[in-house]
Design a protein around this nucleic acid. Sequence first.
DNA 1: GAGGCTAGTGTCAGCCGCTGACAATTGACA
DNA 2: TGTCAATTGTCAGCGGCTGACACTAGCCTC
Lengths: 210, 210
Amino acid sequence: MNLRERKKRRTRDALLRAALELFATRGYEETTVDDIAAAVDVSQRTFFRYFAGKEETAFFVPRLAETLVVEALRARPPHEAPLEALRRSVLESWDAINEAVVELVPIELHMRVYRVIESTPALLAAHLRRSAELEEQLACIIAEREGLDVDRDPRPRIIVALFGGVIRVTERLWSAGDDVTLDGMRELTTTYLDQVGPALAGNWRAEQSP
Amino acid sequence: MNLRERKKRRTRDALLRAALELFATRGYEETTVDDIAAAVDVSQRTFFRYFAGKEETAFFVPRLAETLVVEALRARPPHEAPLEALRRSVLESWDAINEAVVELVPIELHMRVYRVIESTPALLAAHLRRSAELEEQLACIIAEREGLDVDRDPRPRIIVALFGGVIRVTERLWSAGDDVTLDGMRELTTTYLDQVGPALAGNWRAEQSP
DNA sequence: GAGGCTAGTGTCAGCCGCTGACAATTGACA
DNA sequence: TGTCAATTGTCAGCGGCTGACACTAGCCTC
């Protein structure tokens, strides 16, 4: 990699980190693109040459995570039941992210940014849309694994919708709570996924609280 | 209602209809607030006195629908199972919307706008966020019906997440297809909800395609 | 190593969404 | 009818974002 490319990568990384740092401390709406550019001593125009918009910087790590989940699901042994395969893919991919990105964005910074995403309406909206797109991909993979046609059989999409719903509920709880560690997230996720069966069993009033 | 209020309502309605009409024909991003204001022969500033933003006009009908669903669920007999109550509430509320809003926004126009929402990234994101908020409300009501604490027992949120996921899948399918009638939507919804049980039964490969 | 080439950058002008402030207008009500 | 308050228009300005153009700095050739 020659000087030119190294320089490019460095300013992009600097912009990214500056942006995330500012989002995490000052808040997303309170951070202007000019602030970010100024923090790296670069013109605003240059920022927009590296990122399509302010939003894109906030979703840098989530974007990586999404691709990793898709890869993980593709690699799952085909005999696993859909929900099982999904659960393992997600848990796996978190480890992969941890390794892949620590150099660029310390995991602790990403956690703080994540809370900003969950608590900023515009970012939360974008996050949900991204999740919806991811779920569509996952549904297609599940359908393929099971030898079904996604457009003719609703079950893959339903399973993935259920799974995605559970993930989102845990994400919200986790980002609202105090435990911002990866292990906390992992624990919460498994607990909730284990509740899926009981939740659907009906007759909640008979056997109150698990 | 005196002249002043009538006049106010008239310009608000005019702005709303002009906006929706423009969104439906020209597209959301291609319509500027100035266009909308000009169509009603009003200053741009006035538009923003009636609506918090361009987006708000697009979600006028959906917003109404959301409140109706919540009301319908509150009115459901408490002995019904959660999924059953949710399903009936949604189907009911669609009829209510139909009656409540036809004068102001013809149902056919709303259908066209709906497709714009689904196909415009910014609007889809906003739509998903609104849905998430609605689901939170519904989960609280379900929990209350069942005598549970939403924050201690995950099952209400899980059930609602599942339900919401199915609704969203059908919305997407419906808005992508040709049948833009209410009955088409209703039919799709019941079909998909009936698939929830089979989807969770596992062993899809044994009893291929319904 | 000088000079040409081009990728990357800064500057500037401008659109669009949105907001505050102030002045002008228009309905309400005594 | 005249006063008061609500509605509106105008203007200025911020922040996100983009196109156009000139300039600088690394690359590559001779």
